[in-house]
Design a protein around this nucleic acid. Structure first.
Lengths: 347, 347
DNA sequence: CGCTATAAATGGAACGTTCCAATAAATCAA
DNA sequence: TTGATTTATTGGAACGTTCCATTTATAGCG
């Protein structure tokens, strides 16, 4: 049953008894064609089983209708939520997003970007992998293809960024812990080569500073940004002479890992050790105990990024404003008061 | 900085002082070109910032190097794990997988498939959305583009399927529950329009049959295949006169929902009600209590699907064998014995 | 030296669209 | 009727590659 040679616009022109130009016009939904002719052509398309060759079309057209979404870790549900938000917007605009996973690997990322560019994408939405080299996006920029970073940014690039207010989120979270009476605080997970890390850690430190937690009482443990990393962080923290009683985690995945490690030690998050996450993925609410986390309006950021991208494509510019999304702390069960402190507030 | 007109193969030919054919040969890594010439050309490519136009190339070449991965629910970590397995294989073969999400929506699926076809994919790996109409893949088949289904299949299509042994997995799980002394069993989540559902439910019923659980003691509750659906299932089940004491869930997401609903009622999975999931996603092991689940070797199935696809492309056939992957039951904490039964085995 | 064999490089015709300029047909005004 | 205007349709030249058939340069051999 393998088909004969693929049908082209000429085949269906012959079939319908019109010229290829007419067929092309029908395909583009032009109003110049007499309705009867159009239906005749559409029938031929159906009969022949023709499939439009967008590659050929793009050879002539200025812009393609596909944009690339390059994501550093698809297994993190956070990014899936982000992707869902974007897709809604793109679908409405007749743009097709192709998602590619870099698995946090800069080499893989280069390959993926190259492929996407070769495919002629109209734009790129990227959450860059860790260790992305500064020059990675140079050539894409000079090719005039619009790029938007989401969630993550590169140290000194001028590419627009759509991200949550990481600093503010971390301040809120740290203040919350301190108000609950905790005096020895930790920051768990992430590594200093990520700008996001610097922002979140910066907020954490600032809150400590203003609310009077001295440097010796602050413990910073870098680590992988997943469950495993979180577990390792907690072990490290409990090995120091004066362990912390609460931790702000780089993201929710790390927080889940911390809670798991706690349970392995027979301790309970909230009662024995306070933990706060970042991102507020769907799972946070359902976890046990439910995870206190910094909500970043993931889907909203995704939609925002998509809108910015569409506008850039439309106005054929490679510049756009950054967008820093508002954040809020969602207090749940995992961040109980310090048990040895009288200062903890009730709720 | 917006670039001038895109550089083409001719521009770099001029720059390097060779013909376009030579450049093309270099691009393809042909051995016919003198090494010095090749480096000269490569330098020109670098200088000019040329990007290869794969669309134009595909106009002449038989096959493209991109395959489409169409997935019904990217937010289910199970599919992310599956995608990761495939990517490993494709990357090694120089094939670029583009992932598209259908969000379990047949209309969206049609759009996505159309786009992918127009883009000229060499093949399609699909986990079809619920309610996919039988004709959806007809035209793709007749176009000669190889398709592989993963995890799900369509009622009577002849498209090859790579999936776990759902029937066997369900039998193992149900037997396990019955051996633990449970006598009133439920099957939670999913709906009968999915073939996978029929297979898993079929296994469940068969085990009940052979181990002597009569029909009145079997409760079947259909529902969404996510946490929310699982929660709803448990509520429904507890509303009947003689509620079940154990449940096999359509997948892990449903199982997590069930455990959550149990906790809301002050009950604990394992001690008060046994729950078994299906898929054994990474999270199952880390959950609290850890979830007993049917492991399906997700990444392995992904790799398998990718290999089958590559072979189909290579041999330009649209036919291939089905592959039913082995399954195993991973017993953890969530499936304790029936507390009112003397028959439960220890461990 | 001439001749052939091999190696390296090249021109030109596709590939399947779009879009402009041109044509053909239908309508209208005078 | 004729010419002007509008409405539908059409041919042909791009677009950026590949690949075949050639051409040109280089080497090998007697």
């Amino acid at each position: 049953m393998a088909s004969r040679a693929k049908a082209t616009i000429l085949d269906i022109a012959r079939e319908a008894g019109v010229s290829k130009s007419t067929v092309s016009l029908v395909l583009q939904g032009s109003g110049l064609i007499r309705p009867e002719t159009a239906t005749k052509v559409r029938k031929a398309i159906e009969d022949v089983g023709y499939v439009y060759n967008r590659g050929a079309a793009n050879l002539r057209k200025a812009h393609s209708n596909v944009i690339g979404m390059v994501i550093n870790d698809l297994t993190n549900p956070f990014f899936a939520e982000l992707a869902v938000g974007m897709e809604r917007v793109f679908q409405a605009a007749g743009v097709v997003p192709f998602i590619a996973n870099t698995a946090e690997n800069p080499v893989r990322q280069e390959e993926v970007l190259k492929s996407l560019m070769e495919q002629g994408v109209a734009g790129l939405i990227v959450s860059p992998a860790r260790g992305t080299s500064p020059g990675t996006f140079r050539r894409i920029e000079t090719a005039g293809v619009p790029i938007v970073f989401t969630m993550r940014r590169l140290p000194d690039s001028r590419i627009p960024v759509i991200a949550p207010d990481n600093h503010r989120g971390a301040v809120l979270a740290a203040e919350h812990l301190i108000r609950r009476g905790h005096r020895r605080l930790a920051f768990f997970g992430g590594s200093s080569d990520l700008v996001v890390y610097q922002e979140r850690l910066g907020g954490f430190l600032e809150a400590c500073e203003t609310l009077g937690i001295p440097a010796p009482d602050r413990l910073i443990v870098e680590g992988e940004t997943n469950r495993k990393g979180g577990m390792a962080c907690l072990e490290t923290a409990f090995a120091v002479p004066q362990p912390p009683t609460a931790a702000l985690c780089f993201n929710d995945a790390v927080a889940f890992g911390v809670m798991l490690a706690l349970r392995k030690r027979g301790l309970e998050a909230g009662a024995d050790f306070a933990v706060v996450g970042f991102d507020d993925v769907a799972e946070a609410e359902h976890y046990s105990p439910a995870l206190t986390s910094v909500a970043v309006d993931t889907a909203g950021l995704g939609e925002r990024a998509a809108h910015v991208m569409l506008k850039m494509i439309q106005s054929r510019t490679t510049r756009a404003e950054n967008h820093i999304g508002a954040v809020s702390l969602v207090v749940r069960e995992s961040s109980g008061p310090d048990r040895n402190s009288q200062v903890g507030d009730a709720a």
